[in-house]
Amino acid sequence: MKKNIGRKSWFGFTFLLWALCLHSLTGIAQTRNEIVPGEVWPDDKGNHIQAHGGGIIKVKDTYYWYGEERRQGLDSNYRYVSCYSSKDLMNWKFRGDVFKMTDPDSLGKKWVLERPKVYHNLKTGKYVMYMHVDGQVKGKAGNYSYARVGVAIGDSPVGPYKFIRTFRPFGHESRDIGQFIDDDGLAYLIFEDRVSKGFHIAKLSADYLDVEEDICLIKAPLEGGAVVKYDGLYYAIGSALTSWNPNPNKFATARSLKGPWSEFKDIAPVETNTYGSQSTFMLKVTGTKVTSVIFVADKWKPRTQWDSRYLWMPLKIGKGELQLPKPQAWRINVKTGETEMLK
């Protein structure tokens, strides 16, 4: 009798241990060795990454990805910026909502915080976040009449970030923003100016808390501005003004940020509408063997924004040409810079 009870207890304990292990593993995402454009991208907890309209910086050997937090169930009185970290660009750890902001100027329920970008200032040691802040202004038509840049600051890449102010760079309206760090370490803010029908490239001040010089206005009615320097040539990408709907994104080149800039050309077959995506950022990965440039874009779902996806693909770039290949699964070796297309 005692023998039987001991045996049953052993099996019961084994089953309980197995169940507990299974329960603890269900919330953990498996290690990924590929990037699949347009698919759900789980973080370390198995949740779809919420970093829309964002930007990426590298600190030592770690990449930090910031973006608009759009998960369901958020307090509608606030807007949030999320942060994820990665060593390989394929597996991302959720570091929390590093910035939380209330309505800055009584803009109403529909005010927005979009396209957050973070700069690491090596001189001050601070991390400076820029963002597009918009909403309705009394006496003006439309929900995007505020058209300003917001600035916040933090002591570490994962924050928390403290709000400083909003402003209009050089007095211009500012909507979609982008960021660019040149090879000499100088930092630039890219911002769309609807009135001037183009987007500006503005040099930041030494502390990164303000704009210092309006380097160039690229005269093209585009938003989603992104700039990268490759093999001594500057490449700029922009998206047409079609709201949430995708369109054929275009690129231009210049020997200097001040221009002159070439005519804009399509980065993908026109009929694909950039494979249903909109430009957000170009990430340059300089490895021991090659330098790769990744097209970082959003595939927006305006009615279910929490389910919006990402299109990341290595660009075919060089000698004044830039092409976005048809999306497919791929992987990258961040140490060598090499990318591999998967079938």
Rank of each mutant, 00 (worst) to 15 (best):
M129S: 05
S145R: 01
V133D: 03
D176K: 11
F170K: 01
I177M: 08
Y146H: 04
G154S: 02
M131V: 09
M131C: 09
R168E: 09
T166F: 08
Y144E: 13
G154K: 02
G171P: 02
A152W: 01
S145C: 05
I153D: 05
G171Q: 06
G171W: 03
Y161H: 03
V137E: 07
I164Y: 12
V137Y: 11
G139E: 09
V149C: 08
K138L: 12
K140C: 11
F170M: 04
P160L: 05
A141G: 11
E173S: 15
D134P: 00
T166A: 08
M129E: 04
I153M: 11
D155K: 10
K162F: 07
P169Y: 04
G171A: 07
Q136R: 11
D155N: 11
G142D: 01
F163I: 02
N143G: 13
D134A: 08
D134V: 03
R148I: 00
I153T: 13
D155A: 10
M129T: 05
Y130S: 00
G171I: 08
R168I: 09
I153V: 15
G178N: 11
P160R: 03
V151D: 04
V137S: 06
A141I: 15
G154Q: 03
S156F: 05
D176Y: 11
Y130F: 11
F170D: 00
R165N: 12
K162C: 07
D155Y: 08
Y130W: 07
M129K: 05
G139W: 07
K162M: 08
H172V: 11
P157Y: 03
S145K: 01
N143C: 13
